[in-house]
């Protein structure tokens, strides 16, 4: 006979635990339900249209999807080499004490609130970029948004790449070194191969973070719902338009369209994170089975 307290303890804790999938379910349900009017009104054309005009009650998502994708790609283009290099330095190259300080400082980059990055982006980063890049006239544009995002996802990419490198067994490094490999060759021979899927996972997790990041980007990207090929032109992202317009939505349809944008964002980030986690797990579990 089981102790009565135990039975209740299990039931109560389960109630709390199961509220997590329940909340998630409600969240997805609510987003679907509330975006239904926009889905019905605009159909699949919502995703491909380029007009966003609240006054005319005409809404479509492409400029925001475009802005989100491009700013995130800029972020990856900067943060991936930088973060990988940093992770290689921390895990493979440095033996000095100095490296632990660098690791902590990179970690702290992740602790700084988004709105502070935004403030810094408006008054420091933007003007600085205008100064050093010929042809750039406004501090608030796609490029600044991408650079801010790069800084914000750098800790994610660095920390996970480092973890993945360190999951590669030490004796593979030794084998490469014993063949007379330099550190660079050792990385190429022994580490990069086994770490590939983990590195891709780290990159995709970084991408997931960049896609959903809101405040800093909103403050520096210029907020103009137009697709422009120039990186120096203002742009707009999915998260930014929600942040800017949600509290002041002019009509129910406007609100519904914004929620449909959130639904698109949700689907993209869930998919991307699912894939990324799978890849990181694959590497770390393969070489360090629990």
């Amino acid at each position: 006979m089981k102790n009565k307290g135990d039975v209740w303890f299990k039931r109560i804790t389960f109630l709390f635990a199961s509220s997590i999938p329940f909340l998630l379910f409600i969240l997805v349900f609510i987003l679907l339900q509330k975006s239904l009017p926009a889905i019905v009104e605009f159909g699949p054309g919502f995703v491909f249209g380029t007009v966003w005009d609240p006054l005319a009650d005409k809404f479509s998502a492409l400029p925001f999807i475009y802005g989100t994708m491009i700013s995130s790609l800029i972020a990856l283009a900067i943060a991936v080499p930088l973060g990988m290099g940093c992770a290689i330095y921390l895990s493979e190259v440095s033996q000095s004490k100095f490296k632990e300080y660098i690791a902590v400082m990179v970690e702290l980059l992740a602790a700084i609130p988004s709105v502070v990055y935004g403030l810094w982006g408006i008054f420091v980063l933007g003007p600085w970029l205008v100064k050093i890049i010929p042809g750039m006239t406004y501090g608030t544009c796609m490029l600044t948004g991408g650079v801010i995002l790069a800084i914000m996802i750098l800790p994610t990419i660095t920390a996970i790449s480092r973890e993945v490198f360190q999951a590669v067994p030490y004796n593979l490094r030794e084998s490469a070194m014993a063949l007379g490999a330099t550190k660079w060759e050792c990385f190429k021979l022994a580490i990069f191969g086994p770490a590939t899927s983990g590195i891709i996972g780290a990159i995709i997790l970084g991408l997931g973070r960049a896609l959903g990041e809101t405040m800093a980007v909103t403050m520096v990207i210029g907020n103009r719902p137009k697709i422009s090929a120039s990186l120096f032109a203002p742009a707009y992202t999915l998260a930014s338009v929600i942040a800017n317009e949600f509290a002041e939505a002019t009509s129910d349809l406007n609100l519904s369209a914004l929620i449909e944008l959130a639904l698109i964002l949700l689907v993209i980030t869930i998919l991307i994170n699912g894939v990324a986690r799978l890849l990181v797990w694959k590497t770390t579990l393969k070489y360090n089975p629990r």
Partner: peptide, 27 residues
């Protein structure tokens, strides 16, 4: 190649912490 590699990753580590100093400094 080895020298370039070592310098490059060291530079990455240095560049990575510059934003932290800049943000904290300006703030």
């Amino acid at each position: 190649k080895e020298q370039i590699f070592l310098i490059a990753v060291f530079l990455c580590a240095v560049i990575a912490v510059i934003p932290l100093f800049s943000v904290i400094g300006y703030v």
